[in-house]
Design a protein around this nucleic acid. Sequence first.
RNA 1: GGCGGCGUAGCCAAGUGGCAAGGCAGCGGCCUGCAAAGCCGCGAUACCCCGGUUCGAAUCCGGGCGCCGCCUCCA
Length: 462
Amino acid sequence: MIVYNTLGRKREEFKTLEKGKVKMYVCGVTLYDECHLGHGRAYIVFDVIRRYLEWEGYEVLYVQNFTDIDDKIINRAKEEAKSEKEIPEKAREIVERYKESYFRDMDALNIKRADIYPSATEFIPEIIVAVEKLLKKGVAYSGNGDIYFSVDKFPSYGKLSGRKKEELMPGARVEPEEKKKDPLDFALWKSAKPYEPCWDSPWGKGRPGWHIECSVMSLKCLGETLDIHGGGEDLIFPHHENEIAQSESLTGKKFVNYWLHNGFVTVRGEKMSKSLKNFFLLRELLNQYPPQAIRFLILSTHYRNPLDFDLAHLETALRGWKRIEECILKSEEILGGGKTGKLEETKYIQEFRDVMREDFHTPQALRVIFDLVSELNRYLSRGEKSPEAFSLFNDLKTLLEVLGFALPEKLTLPPHLEKLIREREEARKRKDYQTADRIREQLLREGILLQDTPRGTVWRKK
RNA sequence: GGCGGCGUAGCCAAGUGGCAAGGCAGCGGCCUGCAAAGCCGCGAUACCCCGGUUCGAAUCCGGGCGCCGCCUCCA
């Protein structure tokens, strides 16, 4: 299997530390706001990577953190709090609110839950120990109650993002802070201002810096070296660069073997972001489109390429998904649901494997699925219940599950609509097509689409 | 200023040396009472531009042009 490793910027053979096991850490969200499609992309992408690895027989331990203490959360709490002393409580409330919202969106998208969801505030003692260790090793220093990591003390700093320290200086908007010895140094521990949420530490009341939590939590949950660490490409610098510096200074071991980063979602060519106000919230999209359409859209572009979002593109994705869904519904009607006995694998399984082994090539995987759907449709259009058709149907369901598409559920119609369909069939027998067409239109207004097939009239949700 | 990415049919998107996948939309046909769905057939003499390497390039090299990202919180 080949994966593209950001560290080194090349495709590499994927070898796990321990045979058959994958330790995987994906940077989660900061719990201060709703998730938009950009977040959705990241977690769908890593969901598929995880599902594929599991399907290939790997035992995957998947960890995804929550950042539940951070400037943005505090700022939000300050906005919402009525008085200063309410701030810490508000911050907790905000965190809970958006954690719930996160799970609601991600569950709706059929993203498998991680094995562990560590939160920064659950690891304060461990973070403090880590910071003390870094101080003791002389790679960190104290500046007025804040503790900073000294980038100079980590010679290979820049190896992930491909920058040299000197290159970062000119023109870059690196805020020079007086407490820092070097503008690139970053906070491991921040001292608290009055009324901010805080914890006791050897350096006074404060809270952890952003980068240290991932180092500590991945270390505690997965060990010193990870197989895969993932996230959006905007995390490469400085977040992941800083994680490497801290973790490797702490353990002396290589932190991560394979760094995987997904590309952005853009809107009219520009990055989807809060500041540009060009974001689409997952919740709003999910109100209007089935989750499979969103997943289809995401997977139809390779995970490392930018994905330009437009509602028209989502509409196109929906139609594409509908073709697959129609094939499944029709198969169930003609061939019957449920798994049949294991028949020989079709060539499509092998093709799917071939393309997914090449850096998780989901656009190609969708091509394989469409090829399969076309062939299966040929059997179905003849009403043929051959073993080949059963086999194709089984494989189709298998492949869709690996890509995380929830299979359509068997729906039932309210009795009064069922009755209308029966009335229409009577009318058609009488050749009373006016009545039949009237009923068909009436049902369409209810969102029910009718298809008159050789095996009778079937209905679909529009 | 530094680092990185992208530019392929109307739209989306694969392909990274050997006759340009797939989807959506469109057109023609079959099926149908009419539809819907499905099936069959059709679409880039051509891959931003200009040079070069090669028997052969969308694919490699050089030079342009255009768009975007990171360097600041960010999936």
